Computed example of a mutant assay.
Amino acid sequence: MGEKKRKEAAKIHSFIFEKKNYKFMLIGLAFITLGFILMAGGGSDDPNVFNPEIYNWRRIRLAPALILIGFGFEVYAILLNPNQEK
């Protein structure tokens, strides 16, 4: 009798998300990681020297946009119902 209950309990336990959700989560994580990598750098080793490279287009516009797109993918992945047919 105990073995039957264990088998039934094993059937009940499953992942919260499906494979499709995890794919979108990984895509979002890749966008976020790329955004932070693009945002890095541009500083100066000498505090008395100003490096205007810190305010270039890549760090001010592109990197934050990629991070926001990544967060959008993460929200979509969490809300996605993979069992719903379209």
Rank of each mutant, 00 (worst) to 15 (best):
M1Q: 09
M1I: 10
G2R: 08
E3W: 09
K4T: 12
K4F: 14
K4S: 11
K4V: 15
K5I: 15
R6L: 14
R6W: 08
R6C: 03
A9N: 13
A9I: 14
A10G: 02
A10N: 06
A10S: 08
A10R: 09
K11T: 07
K11F: 04
I12P: 00
I12Q: 10
I12V: 14
H13S: 11
S14E: 10
S14F: 02
F15N: 09
I16Q: 10
I16G: 04
F17T: 02
E18K: 04
K19M: 07
K20E: 12
K20F: 00
Y22H: 11
Y22E: 08
Y22F: 15
Y22A: 04
K23Y: 05
F24C: 03
F24G: 01
F24W: 08
M25N: 04
M25S: 10
L26E: 04
L26V: 07
L26N: 05
G28R: 10
L29A: 15
I32T: 04
I32L: 03
I32C: 06
I32K: 01
T33K: 01
T33M: 08
L34F: 02
L34H: 00
G35D: 06
L38D: 07
A40E: 10
A40G: 12
A40M: 11
G41C: 07
G41I: 10
G41R: 12
G43W: 13
G43R: 10
S44V: 11
S44C: 15
S44T: 15
D45K: 13
D46K: 14
P47C: 09
N48D: 14
N48G: 04
N48Q: 12
V49A: 06
F50M: 03
F50G: 00
F50E: 03
N51S: 14
N51L: 06
N51T: 11
P52N: 08
P52H: 07
E53P: 00
E53A: 15
I54K: 11
Y55S: 03
Y55C: 01
R58A: 04
R58S: 05
I60T: 14
R61C: 11
L62T: 14
L62G: 03
A63S: 15
A63F: 04
A63L: 07
A65K: 05
A65G: 01
L66C: 03
L66T: 00
I67D: 05
L68A: 15
L68T: 14
I69P: 01
G70M: 05
G70A: 08
G70R: 04
E74W: 06
E74D: 08
E74K: 07
V75E: 03
V75R: 07
V75I: 15
Y76L: 13
Y76N: 03
A77Q: 01
I78E: 02
L80P: 02
N81C: 09
N81G: 08
Q84V: 05
Q84C: 04
E85K: 11
K86H: 09
K86I: 12
K86E: 11
